[in-house]
Design a protein around this nucleic acid. Sequence first.
DNA 1: CTCATACTTGACCACGTGGTCAATAACTGA
DNA 2: TCAGTTATTGACCACGTGGTCAAGTATGAG
Lengths: 193, 193
Amino acid sequence: MSRPREFDADLALRRCMEVFWTKGFHATSYEDLTRTTQVKKQSLYGVFKNKRELFLKSLALYREENLSVLEKRMACETSPVRRLEAICEAALYADDEARIRGCLIINTSLEFGNGDADINREIGQMMERTEGMIEQAIRDGQAEGAITSRLGSRELALHLSNAINGAKMMEKSGISREEILGVLRTSIALIEA
Amino acid sequence: MSRPREFDADLALRRCMEVFWTKGFHATSYEDLTRTTQVKKQSLYGVFKNKRELFLKSLALYREENLSVLEKRMACETSPVRRLEAICEAALYADDEARIRGCLIINTSLEFGNGDADINREIGQMMERTEGMIEQAIRDGQAEGAITSRLGSRELALHLSNAINGAKMMEKSGISREEILGVLRTSIALIEA
DNA sequence: CTCATACTTGACCACGTGGTCAATAACTGA
DNA sequence: TCAGTTATTGACCACGTGGTCAAGTATGAG
């Protein structure tokens, strides 16, 4: 019926996501996107209406991939405290290039403030779901007495989630992974019973 | 000897700082700066070489003002734990407009990553000095038994400083001040003896 | 008063931006 | 084969950017 698309839209989206991740939304130009995807502007345009839509799709892709990695990592661990440690370890990237990029969600949250409703929704989803996972692990830990019951599971979850956000920030400033992980381990150690 | 300057350079710098604070470095244009300062581009240029230098000066101004406020607030408090609380309260802005702007240092750190040496130095100074203040309060607290000695003062200081950074991030996303302060109070409660 | 000096002003510039357009090419159902 | 549909391509556009320039102007030292 019509001429078939010559490029893989999913792959192109992934490449775009990586550029946004590295440079941020405003700083990436169409030139950047066309260069790394090898897809001309108008073709990209045909699939994703404009830069903003492309970015929103990138955010969603990042979120889903990140959360699925997180879920897998947690499923491997049996003890609640180990699960919390696994979340912290998964939150921080291992290779240096990724570490300097930091977390796309955090970067975006800072870049946009709370001005953009669609962006906010995307970020909120990511936060809520990770907070939920943390809270579940904490509840389990409290049930078996490994984690303090002096404070409620939600408060403790917010405390840890906040610490992770701080760590994701620090990640970008070139501090070593071990140093940052040490801070997070302290934050975990403080909530153990 | 020569024609005197017609505008107040310090005041202009303060206004520029506020624009950078609100919009970030890249997003503020010369047009923004000339509009809010009422000083023409070339005149601003005469005092501060270019946008970048102006930004560095703005960062330094922000840092000094922030730290001096922090020091004053701490001096009012006698108990170490209260001093920690004061730091947390001072870290979060009270009026809504400032809250949405967040912290200029954090914003800058995220915007630049660790690419720019001068920027890094500026940020590092701010971080180190606040960390130092926190660590001192913690040492005092440990000495009088109000704060746990299970962990070292430096580790605890990093934990709290990291939590404050996370809070400064959250601040921008429109969450209520009380809610964020609650998280920080948890982080303090966890290190009490 | 004169003149060197530094400030002021608005016009100007090359460049990169996100986005648009029209011509062309490839494919398929009829 | 051919007509209809969609993808591709590169030229194009108006605009905003950081930065520069040259002409004019207020000041105070000599």
